[in-house]
Structures are given as structure tokens and as C-alpha cells.
């Protein structure tokens, strides 16, 4: 009895210290690979594992990585892809979300379940037939071909529907009395009310499509459309025999824009993933 009481008291005192140590250790382990990549990208080739302190840091790897592939075009393509996808998702999901939230149309429940099924029947799994479809539509090796399968996102429709449903109907009725049309109500009442949802969805969508790889790999065929992830995979391929330091530099280059954005907007990013993740 007494001995267990003593252990309990001692555990309570030691516990916060252990917690802090454990949390920090895990954090260190978790960022170590990334820190190592940054370190390797700044050391002369072959010196990445030389921690003796005599290593002279250099930006030479970044220059050779940058010169070895058309990165500017890759970045432009990723930017186009992310923008195209996001704008498309905003338009299509807004309209559909509004329909499912506020219109009592025939077959609504059934159609909505079909839409939700897409949360499980992922575009990634349908790569073979989606490739055939994109080719049939003449969109092979285009930004549109890369973005279109993701635009009618079941997730976006569901999120915006939830956001629109929480808007008080009185606001809509007031706007209608003022003479707003259906689309006017959507634009003046619902879209402004769902601003936080749009922001959260935008952050998650941009992060997802900036990082997407498999589908862009399949539907692109030329440097003029390839996004950075596909560019990086070609660059790092063992056949191309570039060394660790150069690959590190290229890797850091590819992740830098999102990482910097993440460091600046960490709170918003985490909030966005939270808001979007909870269904």
C-alpha cells in the first residue's frame, strides 16, 4: 500500500521530465532525415558523412542540380497544375455542394451516396482506364489531363455542403427578398460564409497536388508538362548516376517552397488539415 503510494508520487514528479525528453527525442528523430538532406546538400560531394567539422559548406550542389534539369519549367508546370486544379475544384465543388445542401431535387440522396463512394474509389486506383479516358479526350500530356480527374472532388463537395448547411436560412431569405437570384445568393451569402472552409481546403489541395506523383507520371511525356515530383524522380534515378549531394540539393529545392510556406503558416496548415480531416 505505502510503497505503491510512494512510487505513485515519484512517478508524478518524474513523469513531466520523461515526457519532455521523450517528446524532444521523437521530434529530433522525426526531423533528422530532413536535416541530414539539407546538410548533405550543402557539403561537397562525398563529404556528406564527414562530421569532423573540417567540411567547407558550399552552394555548388544547388548550381549543378539546377543546371542538370529544366527545373524552372517543372516548377512552372507544378504551379499551373496546382492553380488549375484548385480553381476547378472551387467552381465545381461550390456548385455541387450548394445543390446538395439547399436543393431538394429528385434522386438527391442516391446521387450523393454515389459521390461519397469516390472517397473510396480513388483516382489512383483507376489509373489505367483514366489514362485511356484522358487519351481519348486528347488531353494526354497536358496540364488539364493531370488536373481534371481530381476536380470533381467528392471530398470538396462534402466539405462545402457541410459548410453551406450551417449557414442560417434566414440570410438566404433576406437576400432573396432583396432580389438576389439563385446564383446571386450563392455568391453573396454562401461563399463568403464558407471562407474558412475554402482556405482550409485550398491549403490541403495545394499541398496534395504539389506532392502528387503517380498520376502525373502516367499522363505526362515531355518536360513541358512534367511537374517537379516527376522531374525529381527522373533526376534521382540510379541510371542517371548523380551523387548524393546533388540529389539532396535537388530534393531540398523541390520541397523548399512548401516547407517555407509551412514554417510561416504552420498554425493555419495544421488547422486546415484538422478542419478538412474531420468529417
Amino acid at each position: 500500500m505505502t510503497s505503491s503510494a510512494i512510487t505513485l508520487r515519484r512517478t508524478i514528479r518524474i513523469a513531466p521530465l520523461l515526457d519532455t525528453a521523450g517528446a524532444w527525442l521523437l521530434a529530433l528523430i522525426w526531423v533528422a532525415p530532413l536535416l541530414f538532406a539539407i546538410w548533405a546538400s550543402l557539403t561537397p560531394s562525398g563529404q556528406a558523412l564527414n562530421f569532423s567539422g573540417e567540411v567547407r559548406l558550399t552552394l555548388e550542389n544547388y548550381r549543378s542540380a539546377w543546371d542538370a534539369a529544366p527545373w524552372a519549367i517543372y516548377f512552372r508546370n507544378t504551379l499551373f497544375l496546382v492553380t488549375f486544379t484548385l480553381i476547378g475544384q472551387f467552381i465545381f465543388c461550390t456548385l455541387a455542394g450548394y445543390a446538395f445542401a439547399r436543393f431538394d431535387f429528385f434522386g438527391r440522396e442516391f446521387v450523393f451516396v454515389l459521390v461519397l463512394l469516390q472517397l473510396f474509389i480513388l483516382p489512383e486506383v483507376l489509373i489505367v482506364e483514366n489514362y485511356a479516358m484522358v487519351s481519348r479526350l486528347g488531353l494526354f500530356d497536358t496540364i488539364a489531363g493531370m488536373g481534371l480527374p481530381y476536380i470533381a472532388s467528392a471530398f470538396g463537395i462534402f466539405l462545402l455542403r457541410q459548410a453551406f448547411k450551417s449557414v442560417p436560412v434566414e440570410l438566404e431569405e433576406a437576400a432573396r427578398i432583396e432580389g438576389c437570384t439563385w446564383l446571386g445568393v450563392l455568391w453573396r451569402v454562401y461563399v463568403p460564409a464558407a471562407k474558412p472552409t475554402y482556405l482550409a481546403y485550398a491549403l490541403v489541395s495545394v499541398a496534395t497536388h504539389w506532392n502528387n506523383f503517380l498520376w502525373p507520371l502516367i499522363v505526362t511525356n515531355s518536360p513541358d508538362t512534367r511537374p517537379v515530383t516527376v522531374g525529381l524522380s527522373l533526376f534521382g534515378a540510379p541510371e542517371s548516376s548523380v551523387n548524393i549531394s546533388t540529389i539532396s540539393a535537388a530534393t531540398v529545392m523541390v520541397i523548399a517552397p512548401l516547407m517555407i510556406a509551412f514554417l510561416i503558416f504552420q498554425r493555419q496548415f495544421v488547422q486546415a488539415f484538422l478542419r478538412v480531416g474531420i468529417r
Binding site: L34, N211, F213, T229, L232, G236, I255, L258, V270
Partner: peptide, 15 residues
């Protein structure tokens, strides 16, 4: 803890 989530899988694999 959250940082790896923001990386493309391809970059994670390179690292």
C-alpha cells in the same frame, strides 16, 4: 512531427 506530411513521397524516398 508534422513536417514529413508536407513532403512529397518522392522526396521522402530520396532522403
Amino acid at each position: 512531427y508534422f513536417t514529413p506530411t508536407m513532403l512529397p513521397m518522392i522526396a521522402a524516398a530520396n532522403i
